[in-house]
Simulated assay, not measured.
Amino acid sequence: MDRRPGLSVRLKLTLSYAGFLVLAGLLLLAAGWVFLNHVPHVGLIMVPNYRLAVVREFAPFAAVALAFLLVFGLVGGWLLAGRMLAPLTRITEATRTATHGSLSHRIRLPGRADEFRELADAFDVMLARLEAHVAEQQRFAANASHELRTPLAISKTLLDLARTDPHHDSAQIIGRLHAVNTRAIDLTEALLLLSRANQRSFTREPVDLSLLAEEATETLLPLAEKRGIRIETSGDVSPTVGSQALLLQLTMNLVHNAIVHNVPEQGTVWVDTGVRARSVVLTVENTGEKLAPQVAATLTEPFQRGTERVHTDHVGVGLGLAIVRTITEAHDGTLTLTPRSAGGLRITVELPAPSAA
């Protein structure tokens, strides 16, 4: 925003201090003048025209006093205003540095708590969150580019092979191209879903998490049976408010993740819903490999996986838990990932109850 040049805050404060000091001096001199006029001294009474004598004696003193107060107010006000505004100057410099793209610096204003230090601390917290968000977005862009480049590179290789080797099995090439293209489409749709959830561009309506959990388990039951995974569901009616499509996608992703990252042929997935005082809870727990807490904390970042990538038709695109986190945050909920001591993962989604929402 373009603004016309004006006086600095420091100069305004200086003039305010000096003006207040001069005004106080004027009031003090006026009080003295009234006192001398209404309570004349004996020595002045004996002098002819004693009022005129009072003026002659009082006026030079008053002028000198006011001049001193004005100079003292300007100099003292300038120094005092500079000292008081020094924290604001540091905050302004940090803000200008941040506008040029540097988010690693912090103000770290010393001293006891006051308004300026609270502002500086809040600014430091904002810088830390921005730095983490920018770093996450950079990793996301790099990983998304890599994930999208991989199927394109494979498709190009297969097409080059079909063009240079006419005797190659075309059915096999078409089958591999279909699989690669399907994965690219799944990745693109996941990215679009992630963007939609981030923008919160959805209509809120009453939703029952228990019904979504039942639908997700029934849909993914064939995949679980194929892998020898047992699914156990339990819980109560869990009403909340949100997008039924997005919350169903959240539940599907959680159950799918629990099935894929599990112990083959003998694993178990537990799906449970419940109601708390001001929230409803969806919990998906699965057996599997043991995970360190620091590894579990990174699983909600895009394209992060707790184990090595497995090349199957149900491996996913690396955005499952990232989408779960985004949908949860878009519904003002909280997502908690806790490694199980026996192996596997426990994921809890807590959403506001209808009254709280």
Rank of each mutant, 00 (worst) to 15 (best):
V295T: 13
Q249Y: 10
M252W: 08
P239W: 01
I259K: 07
K290S: 13
L223S: 03
H261V: 02
L209M: 13
L248V: 07
S234T: 13
I231R: 09
V241F: 13
E225M: 03
A213H: 06
D236S: 13
E285Y: 03
V295A: 06
L248E: 10
L211A: 15
G267W: 05
N253I: 02
T240H: 09
S243R: 07
T287S: 15
T251M: 02
P264R: 08
L248A: 12
Q249F: 07
L247W: 11
N262S: 12
V260D: 05
N286R: 05
H261I: 04
N257M: 03
L282Y: 09
V207F: 13
T287I: 06
G288A: 09
S210V: 08
S279C: 02
V255M: 02
K290N: 09
A245K: 14
L248W: 08
S279A: 15
S243E: 03
T268E: 08
L209V: 10
L248N: 14
A296Y: 03
E215S: 15
W270Q: 12
E205D: 10
L223T: 05
Q266V: 04
T273F: 06
A277Q: 15
G235C: 06
D236E: 15
N286E: 00
D208G: 06
N262G: 04
D208N: 14
L282K: 06
V269N: 06
A216Y: 04
R276D: 14
E289Y: 10
V263Q: 14
V263Y: 02
T251D: 00
L212S: 13
W270G: 04
H261W: 15
P293K: 00
H261E: 00
A297G: 03
T251A: 14
L250G: 05
K290W: 12
V237A: 10
S243Y: 08
V241T: 15
R278T: 15
V284F: 07
E215V: 07
T268P: 01
V269G: 06
T219G: 04
W270I: 11
L250K: 11
P264Q: 05
D272G: 04
H256P: 01
E289N: 12
V241E: 14
Q266D: 02
Q244A: 12
N257F: 10
L212C: 13
E289C: 10
G274V: 06
T251R: 07
T240K: 08
T251E: 00
K290V: 13
R276P: 02
T283M: 12
A296G: 05
L220H: 05
V284G: 02
V275L: 08
P264A: 06
E285H: 03
L211V: 15
L250P: 09
T283A: 13
A277N: 13
I231C: 05
V207A: 03
T219C: 05
T240Y: 08
L209W: 11
H261G: 04
V207N: 08
G242P: 14
V271Q: 01
V271F: 05
I229A: 03
Q266L: 03
A258L: 00
T233V: 14
R278L: 11
V281D: 10
E215M: 11
E218W: 05
E215C: 11
S210Q: 14
I231D: 00
E205H: 10
T251C: 09
A296T: 11
L212Q: 11
G267E: 00
R227C: 00
E214Q: 13
H256L: 08
H256C: 01
P239K: 03
V280W: 09
P293Q: 02
A213V: 06
L221V: 05
K226D: 07
A213T: 09
V260C: 02
L291F: 15
P239H: 03
A216N: 04
